[in-house]
Design a protein around this nucleic acid. Sequence first.
DNA 1: GATTTTACGTA
DNA 2: CGTACGTAAAATCT
Length: 771
Amino acid sequence: MPIKTIIPPGSPKIMLVGEAPGEVEEAYGAPFVGSDGTTLKKILTQAGIFYGDCIITNCSNRRMRTFYADKKRLVPSAEFSQEIERLRQEIISTSPNIIVALGALAMYVLTGNEGIDNFRGTIAPCTLVPGKKVLITQHPKAVHFDYQLFYIMTMDFRKVAHEALSPTLPVENRTLCVAPRKQEAVEYLSYLYHNWEKEDLKLAIDLEHVTPGAHISWFGITHSSTYAMSIEFIQKRLPTFPEMDEVELWHWIGLLIGSGVPLIFHNGSYDVINLWDKGLWCKNVHFDTIIAAHAVWPEFPRTLGFLSSILLNVPAWKHTSGSQYEKGEYNAADVANTRAIYEPLYQIVNSDDNYKLIFDQEMSQIELAGFMQLQGINVNLEARDKLLTEYTTKKNEIETGLNTILKKNINFSSPKQLQELLYVDLGLPTQFKRRKSADDPRKITTDADALDKLFAETQHPVLKLLLEHRKYTKLLQFISTSVSPSNTVHTSYNICGTDTGRWSSSASIILDYGPGNLQNIERTIRDMYVPPTIGGRKTCWVQADYIGAEAHLVANVILDNKLMAAFDNGEDIHKATASFMFGIPVEEVTKDQRTVGKTIRHATNYSAGPGVIQRKLKIPIKLAKEYLTRFLNATPQLQLWHEKLRQELQNGRILTTPLGRKRVFMARWGDQLFRSAYAFIPQSTIGDLLNISFVDFYERYKDFPNVGCSIQLHDAIYIWCFEEEKEYWAEKLYESMHRPIHLPHTDLYIGVDFKWGYDWKNMDKLEINKR
DNA sequence: GATTTTACGTA
DNA sequence: CGTACGTAAAATCT
């Protein structure tokens, strides 16, 4: 039996179109009566829309086994065609101002579009009933798989509420000037140059490049959200303009961006730094829309397409860009939309002191992050080759050994072949992956933990060899990385790379050399990385790291007096932990007990269970549980704090760190969300503290020729200088890093440790005067 | 050829 | 049932 479309009395303005009824809907004879309906109602309420005011229907009001008659799912089946016709008639007879397509099927039926991620949040003309407008969003059932969509759909429905006021489609009022002739481009650039000050212009810029070399192929620029010019510089790796014309264009671009005109970017960390690499300096980087979005919604996607779908009423464009001309159109649309989202983002950032604080802080990091990306890290080729030989030999020996024992060749990097080997051929007990939640499916694994466990149980020699093989394979991955012609590797430090405010690091597309991520290099092979040689003289590295930073902060946040005192007195805090865990004097703590203290301290700060401790310490689960209980009993403040955080989350799902960074937690309510929350405060605070300090140091000394910034490692900073000046620069670095965190009861200062050395592995303690 | 999964390195 | 990341190689999809 078909269900019935709900049509409220009067002239309803909003029509919601789902897919087809499920079992529950069919039983009740009405759409959206199950759990999807509950989700939908919640979202509508959040968006200020009353469910009872909406027409509620589906693409099909009958349960349907197959919607389409063909394999490509383009031609509706006969019975589905009837239902589509019924929908068409209902749209005509009820004539809503806005139709909401819930999910990909409704989008396809109503608009003919495919690929929901490209269109979600945008308005498209209705093809089923021409003249009508359709807002595309996800089906409420998608929230079940990705809870964040609840918040995204809420934003979509706020747009629905606005669009319901009138039946007219948003007008496309943008002029995109694609691949202009030189004269036209120069006219625009010179107009901007001569008039930006008196007309108070703010310019958005966006680059497209071709690889390798990140050569700029399109330069998009605009002063307005309704106009954009995209200048084409490269077509199929050949220059578009004669050399003199291109020189003239770059001359104007250089004049303009160096003039001090406020510039707006979407991910300026790329554009500004690429221009810098090509010798062009952006004097006034006024606003980065990615940084703004990161300061405000760290958990949301930050692509231009997403932000435009949330903040603007422009048609979807990210799925276009095929032909050369379309690439220019795409670039022009990008820059116009960057200019457009700037306006609302500027308002939002400035509406809240915390947002503004974090925004300004992250903007100040662009130059430092970019400087380190372009400078790179030097590689000592001799040291690299030595490591390469050493580990290749070791890996080969193990392979030979394994092949002899197994009497056949398999790919030890293949999880599939290893499963076959371990759980079928050798008949070992099948191991399952550690799950994040009890609801997750059990998955067979051959990871290091599984091999460790199997070795402990069976002492099978193959397992040990496999583990070593893994280790050397991984090391060789790090060692055999590409190096630039000047023997450097480069990383892109991503200011907005995490939800916590820590930086991440990834492959540089401007200088594509090295392993990309320079924040996860294995310690044993770090000696292949060396500080630069300046004026023919070798420099050394000075490393400064915050001592036990996260634990120190947590101790002060939860007011753990014992631990606070241990930090204040400069004690070994892991020994101190072991001391009160085992109820023995600090002097009697053994090395093993210290390791236990260290592991438990770390694990409990992030609410780990006994399983983690069992694996880290390689001890029986019973002992791990005992240690855990002992620790938690000795530190009741920790659980009280975790409880307090959960309560805080219940009031709006927002946490604010002592340094003012806010994060909304959008995961489904439960343990995983709680754990992210417990980790957020220390991770974010220390990350921010270090970045503030690093920028402070960079800004003070960036023009000094004998010192430079090299590496950021979350809670450690590396700078290079000459050996005889290492104490001097370490003291300067200390001045930048010795910085208070304001807490209710005190201003907390995290201690700093210094080391120095001529490579990244062999570093010695460096004593300095800390005033 | 593009996308997803598995495994593993760092703080 | 530690969180936060990025990458290589294998596996899988189209």
